[in-house]
Simulated scan of single mutants.
Amino acid sequence: MMHTPVSALSVGCCCRCRSERGVRNGCLWGISSCLSCDHHPRPWTHTGSQGNVRYMQETPLSLSVRHLLSYSMSDSNSTDFTNPSTFILLGIPGLEAAHVWISIPFCVIYAIATLGNFTILFIVKTELSLHGPMYYFLCMLAVTDLVLSTSILPKMLSIFWFNSREINFSACLTQMYFILSFTAIQSGVLVAMALDRYVAICDPLRHSTILTNPMVAKIGLAMVLRGAMLVLPIPLLARRWPYCRTNIISHTYCEHIAVVKLACADISVSSYYSLSVAFFVIGQDVVFIAMSYTQILRAIFSLPTKDARLKTFGTCGSHLCVILSSYIPALFSFLTHRFGHNVPQHLHILMANMYLLVPPMLNPIIYGVRTQQIRDRLLQPFTHKGT
């Protein structure tokens, strides 16, 4: 009896499907049932060459590997696909045994970021004395931090805790878009905050007339539109590429380059465009912030007394700390990704997660500790109890 060749990557079949259809149909074995006949099988594996087939029961370790491979193959005769229905996120390759332990600090980071940013929003909303440009921009930063951390953490924790690695193709591109666009929006909000500090220190008499509420709203809308429009072509380009290699992503989320590298096409357009957007957005923002603080420092050092200089510098100290906590991890991750070819892959992935998750945790802490109005409002319930 002639049989069609079995793929180099053995594919498991259930007993019933094997006995009824043999190797010729190339049935797939899933985690709970045979994908070809929906039968709950005992797992077996085809080995051997054409005309010589034998069956071997799999071990638990091989089952988890086979589960991933079953999503990257269609049947024994065809492995090409152009529009995958799902991608498989591996998490942190090489550290699978420690996924549960790694999830603990990430859970703490997410809890602090969520609680801290919602607290900032609540305090600014309820305290009338904080209704000003600086705190409006701080609320915008808190919203971007919440969206960024929520775009990543829930799916990452489902991988670590429940081994839920599948993500829909459209959901993957949506996650990619939210991460990239809100990263650009976050950078734009930092520029707006630098503008607020520049006007407050260098031209304090005109601060209330320049940064009015309508102007603050226009600046915020401009930052949102810039990030949303510049990033939009990136997932649209990723959608049009044909994917015929595999659908397994060695990452905890749908990172852009990790996704488009799976395409069997020339992806130079995607690479060049995403790199151009990164340099345009981040480069432009860093230059503008540097120019603003150059003028701010000149104005501070021109003050007559040391106490006046320290007091004035303290008004922008929180913003400087937020800038450093946002750009330094991102710069470090970018440099290790581009030039750290000897750095292990799991360190690249950990850094890519940290530069997106650490700033949302640190920003409310920095402003809560260094801004007297927010600190007083936070301590108000405790000070009233003590009196």
Rank of each mutant, 00 (worst) to 15 (best):
T144L: 05
D145K: 05
L146H: 01
V147Y: 05
L148K: 02
S149T: 08
T150Q: 07
S151L: 04
S151F: 02
I152E: 01
I152M: 07
L153A: 08
L153V: 15
P154S: 07
P154L: 09
P154H: 06
K155E: 01
M156S: 08
L157C: 04
L157Y: 02
S158R: 12
F160G: 00
W161R: 04
F162Y: 12
I167D: 00
I167H: 01
I167V: 11
N168Y: 01
N168K: 02
F169W: 11
S170H: 09
S170T: 07
S170F: 06
A171P: 01
C172D: 01
L173V: 07
T174D: 05
Q175D: 02
Q175N: 11
Q175L: 01
I179C: 13
S181R: 00
S181T: 11
F182A: 00
T183G: 12
A184S: 14
A184I: 02
I185K: 03
I185R: 05
Q186R: 15
S187A: 14
V189I: 15
L190M: 12
V191L: 14
V191R: 04
A192G: 10
A194T: 03
A194N: 01
A194M: 01
D196Y: 08
D196N: 15
I201W: 05
C202Q: 08
D203Y: 13
D203Q: 13
P204I: 04
P204E: 06
L205Y: 10
L205N: 11
R206F: 08
R206K: 14
T209M: 04
I210R: 10
L211R: 06
L211H: 08
P214G: 11
P214H: 11
M215D: 01
V216C: 14
A217I: 07
A217N: 07
I219P: 03
I219K: 07
G220K: 00
L221W: 13
L221E: 06
A222I: 00
M223F: 09
V224A: 13
G227H: 08
G227C: 09
A228I: 07
A228K: 06
L230H: 08
V231D: 03
V231K: 02
I234N: 03
I234F: 05
L236V: 14
L237M: 15
L237Q: 09
A238V: 11
R240T: 12
R240F: 11
P242V: 04
P242H: 13
Y243K: 06
R245N: 04
R245H: 09
I248F: 04
I248C: 10
H251M: 15
H251E: 15
H251A: 15
T252S: 14
C254A: 14
C254Q: 02
E255H: 09
E255S: 08
H256M: 03
I257F: 13
I257G: 00
A258H: 13
V259F: 04
A263G: 11
D266G: 11
I267E: 10
S268Q: 11
S268T: 14
S268W: 06
Y272A: 13
Y273L: 14
Y273T: 06
S274F: 10
S276F: 14
S276A: 15
S276T: 12
S276C: 13
S276D: 03
S276E: 00
V277S: 08
V281I: 15
